[in-house]
Design a protein around this nucleic acid. Sequence first.
DNA 1: GTTTAGCACTCTACAGTTGAGAGTGCTAAC
DNA 2: GTTAGCACTCTCAACTGTAGAGTGCTAAAC
Lengths: 337, 337
Amino acid sequence: MEPAARKKRILSAIVESYVKTGEPVGSKTLISEAGLKVSSATVRNDMADLTERGYLVQPHTSAGRVPTQRGYRFYVDNALTVKPVSEQGRMYISETLAQGADSPENVLQNAANLLTRLTDCIAFATTPNGEESRVRKISFVPTGAHSAMAVLIASNGVIKTKLFRCEFLITPEILTVFDNALNEVFAGVRLSAINRPFIQTAAAGFGDLSLLLPSALIAVKDASDLAREVSVYHSGLGLLAGDAQGDRILTFLQNRHDVAATLERLPLDTAVTIGRENSRVELAYSAVVSARYRIDNSPAGVLAVVGPLRMDYAKMLAVLDCAGSCVSELLNEMIDV
Amino acid sequence: MEPAARKKRILSAIVESYVKTGEPVGSKTLISEAGLKVSSATVRNDMADLTERGYLVQPHTSAGRVPTQRGYRFYVDNALTVKPVSEQGRMYISETLAQGADSPENVLQNAANLLTRLTDCIAFATTPNGEESRVRKISFVPTGAHSAMAVLIASNGVIKTKLFRCEFLITPEILTVFDNALNEVFAGVRLSAINRPFIQTAAAGFGDLSLLLPSALIAVKDASDLAREVSVYHSGLGLLAGDAQGDRILTFLQNRHDVAATLERLPLDTAVTIGRENSRVELAYSAVVSARYRIDNSPAGVLAVVGPLRMDYAKMLAVLDCAGSCVSELLNEMIDV
DNA sequence: GTTTAGCACTCTACAGTTGAGAGTGCTAAC
DNA sequence: GTTAGCACTCTCAACTGTAGAGTGCTAAAC
């Protein structure tokens, strides 16, 4: 075998052995496990070279080698063969996700729970980000003499409500007027366009009505903001107990908005993000495997698991890929009512 | 001083010193800190007695004493003077809770965040349990040709929505019929009474209509179930990093339903629950300080902090009591629209 | 030029030892 | 009932020695 090819094989074997055992891998272990036809001295030379080039490190002088983040990256990019989830596995995943799932939120929580169970990692699922979605319909529901609820239905299936109060008496007639007026203005508008200037311009266009509308307009804007907000479901907190990176990850979880933003920033495809490649320092020693689910065939929310660098990347990728496509299927069914 | 009174004083002093320093308290330290007018030998005799009666323990032969759970309990019941939060403190709490609080959920999340900040403990806030509350109003909003959304407004101010589909075409007229029919049946009914038998009986009473109603009825029941469900907001996960009980508490947090149930089971007043007094084993080495907030003057949800047994109980009680009443005020304002 | 055997070297992990310091329980006297 | 004095116990931290694992280097073999 060519020296170059052998080195690649040695690196893969070290990653795989280290992932399995957690022990630094020495030259002798490597020969017996990888079935190499060379002596330990040769392997040592190759390992020294790989160390020099930054793919491996030695915890201390007399220890075996451990992959660096660069080592894992090389392994994931060049030496990984992902075997898709079996047909039975896929059915199991699909059925588990659908269990008692009467809303998209439920499906996503199911997904996080399931991923934790299948991967033994903390898992996340985000709601679809609303950046691309538009207002499908606005309705009003009376809730009291001076209060009502605005209901916004977005094109990605998300429904948000917001209460508001008025000085004047709210009658069914007024709500009908609101309904007609606001649907005319908002229908088809992108959620991201609904900001203060937008509602001010809208209000100005209503003549007499504009005196009655402000609180309703603000309620619609608030509902739109809520619909754009990404919320995050997670599962597997308990796994952090005793985990080496547990403290860091807890710090990461502390701030909901950071978590949402970090997950949103993940690639649009199934992907592995290793250590410092992550946008948050708290994840500098963790690996994130993620997949997007799609709604109406465009990337929507993300499923992800966070675990140690030392993880079975092939398995994780297979599971996430499958879960992602199952979630897509389920949500698309639910939404196109 | 009477020996009995002195022992009580010694126990309190040990609790307070241990809470402050975290170090087992020896007889000499005790004399200098509690200003006792007896010798260390006398104190040692008293400590030996308190140890025998289960109020103190020695981590090892040559160490000072540490309070047992029984010791803490005695201290909390007999030696604690709670000084109410100052007027300024109260205003600060009240204002912080109200910040950007446009829904009860927001107020509760604010409360959890604030409690974490003030107490350096993980904090929880539960939504009002719906056991006592009744249906105030039901509305329907069309969302598509064959789908609509049921909106249930409960007497405790909670609003829940549920989508449903029908085989037949949904027109505004049909929804008006639904609206009238279902408000007649459900208005004033306790949420806990809305179960399968109830909706079956209800459906039976509608004659011809009953063919159209089932999915709407089920949607109302589902919304009612959602409204009864207690959800839990929490804050301070990051504090678990490096905490001695962190692992246990993470395990406790793992299951949302257990958390909700445990919190619901806490006393109706401001209270301290110490170690094994808690209903969950994971909290056997933690203390929970809790307060109920009230809606319409009856106990609704709970605010709680979970921390080490070794905590400043007086301060915690003061803060929780204050936060509880501030949340009550705020929510009552929001709800009686 | 590449590969190999052999050997000296380095480092860790673990177990055992030691001495200082803290705090106790007991006893005899007040 | 309280106190002084003293022997005793236990922890903690620092230090030591040893076994084991794995390396890097060198000189010889392919």
